[in-house]
């Protein structure tokens, strides 16, 4: 893993996308996340909004944009459940911030690093969700870490395919 200095960071390319991509890709992720479990049943081990949040946070390398995008995606996901609105929001806000901050310091063009980052950040998101639900809110929530592990693996696998596809959509000078 290559650590970058300040000069390298200055020269690093910020990924830019058409406005339509910023609007449609997160929306598609949210719609598919809501629709695919109806088709796949209990085997829907993935979190597409989280993958998209990580992708844009890593590509834009802006902690503020990563934070805001994570918050928006998380709140949207919460709104579709019957749980409290904000639990996913807090988790994905933190993940968006961490992913963007990581993208500043690490060369994230490498596919292997992206996959590992997705796996780790997915588990981190689950851990934050659990901590907020149980520790902060004191809700009576039963938890299955194996399911979260499968979701992290699923996210990493999806990132392996989705990230190169989304890279093609970026604006190149």
């Amino acid at each position: 893993m290559k650590l970058l200095g300040a000069d390298d960071r200055r020269d690093m390319e910020i990924h830019r996308y058409p406005l339509l991509v910023y609007a449609l890709v997160p929306l598609a992720a949210l719609v598919l996340q809501a629709w695919l479990p109806r088709v796949l049943g209990r085997y829907a081990f993935f979190d597409l909004p989280l993958v998209v949040t990580i992708y844009f946070a890593l590509g834009r390398r802006s902690p503020i944009q990563g934070t805001l995008m994570g918050a928006a995606m998380g709140l949207f996901e919460d709104a579709l459940t019957h749980h409290a609105i904000g639990v996913n929001g807090v988790a994905k806000t933190a993940v968006g911030f961490i992913a963007a901050s990581t993208g500043i310091r690490i060369d994230v063009e490498n596919h292997a690093i992206r996959v590992i980052l997705n796996f780790v950040l997915s588990l981190l998101s689950s851990a934050i969700y659990y901590a907020v639900s149980r520790g902060m809110l004191g809700l009576d929530l039963e938890w299955n870490w194996f399911t979260q592990l499968f979701i992290a693996i699923g996210n990493a696998a999806i990132a392996l395919v989705l990230f190169p596809f989304l890279d093609r959509l970026q604006i190149r000078d």
């Binding site: 503020i64 918050a71 609105i85």
Partner: peptide, 24 residues
């Protein structure tokens, strides 16, 4: 600390929203 301030603000707003929804 602009990044951290924005992060803290977003988190605080969401946590306050959560506190409103949960009853003891």
């Amino acid at each position: 600390y602009r990044n951290l301030v924005v992060l803290a603000a977003v988190l605080v707003v969401q946590i306050m929203g959560l506190a409103i929804q949960v009853r003891r």
